[in-house]
């Protein structure tokens, strides 16, 4: 790939042409929040949390390829407000009872809310009627917490198999569906992989959870993205 120059937050960085803006930023120690993005799978650009000003327009960094002399701004007050609002809307339109959630402390959505100091509710909580699917012997699906990021559908847990997750219904009735026949003999490893694919507590391993004490979980002390910011330049 040919080398290009991309300007991020006022600094010129050399990058490979066509690499996504998100990746270029991350490799240079600049964090951009994400939710639907998952390293190694094709980006889909649906959550909009990674929105940046790219050549003057609001664009998603995970799906925009870098080009020569592109100008990217990642952290204006307006962008931070957009992101904080998206995050709060996800809380309001689901049923997120963090104190009772196995994923609490390790949840990407919650971690973003911490990073953006979500304290004052601006939207009414909808408390939609949603269910839990616990038919699989190894994992359960809690629709109350699903943010419909599609990561579980887009990531193949085993290279040769199609995804075992699909969307059903449409609009605000959309929900994730697990193929119970194909996943009947899920082992612990696949169950863990499925859980790790999900950014929130919607895919949970059975008979597991709450095993890391409060204070030692991933986002208890370190804000999400601080690993990228502390690592500095990696390429």
């Amino acid at each position: 790939m040919s080398k290009i120059l991309v300007n991020i937050n006022g600094v010129d960085y050399s990058a490979e042409s066509g690499k996504m803006v998100l990746k270029v930023a991350n490799e240079n120690g600049i964090y951009i929040p994400t939710l639907c993005h998952f390293e190694g799978i094709k980006p889909q650009g649906s959550c909009r949390v990674c929105t940046c000003k790219i050549d003057g327009r609001n664009m998603t960094a995970c799906t925009t390829p870098a080009s020569h002399r592109m100008v990217v701004v990642t952290d204006t007050a307006e962008l931070e407000k957009i992101r904080a609002t998206i995050i709060e809307l996800l809380f309001a339109e689901g049923n997120h009872f963090c104190p009772a959630c196995e994923r609490s402390g390790n949840c990407e959505l919650q971690a973003l809310a911490y990073r953006y100091k979500m304290m004052v509710p601006q939207f009414p909580y909808l408390f939609p009627a949603k269910d839990l699917d616990a038919k699989n012997p190894k994992i359960m699906i809690d629709h109350n917490r699903c943010i419909l990021c599609k990561r579980c559908i887009r990531r193949k847990l085993e290279p040769d198999n199609p995804s075992w997750f699909v969307f059903k219904n449409r609009g605000n009735k959309t929900q994730i569906n697990l193929d119970h026949e194909l996943t009947a003999d899920f082992d612990d490893e696949l169950a863990q992989k499925a859980m790790d694919t999900c950014p929130v507590g919607a895919i949970i391993r059975k008979e597991k959870g709450f095993d890391v004490p409060i204070g030692e979980r991933k986002y208890d002390k370190n804000p999400i993205g601080s690993d990228i910011e502390n690592k500095g330049v990696t390429s």
Partner: peptide, 16 residues
Amino acid sequence: GECAIMGGLPAMRNNN
């Protein structure tokens, strides 16, 4: 606390 802000665990009855 969560209960005062969004209903908290008692509000788990709200959705279903």
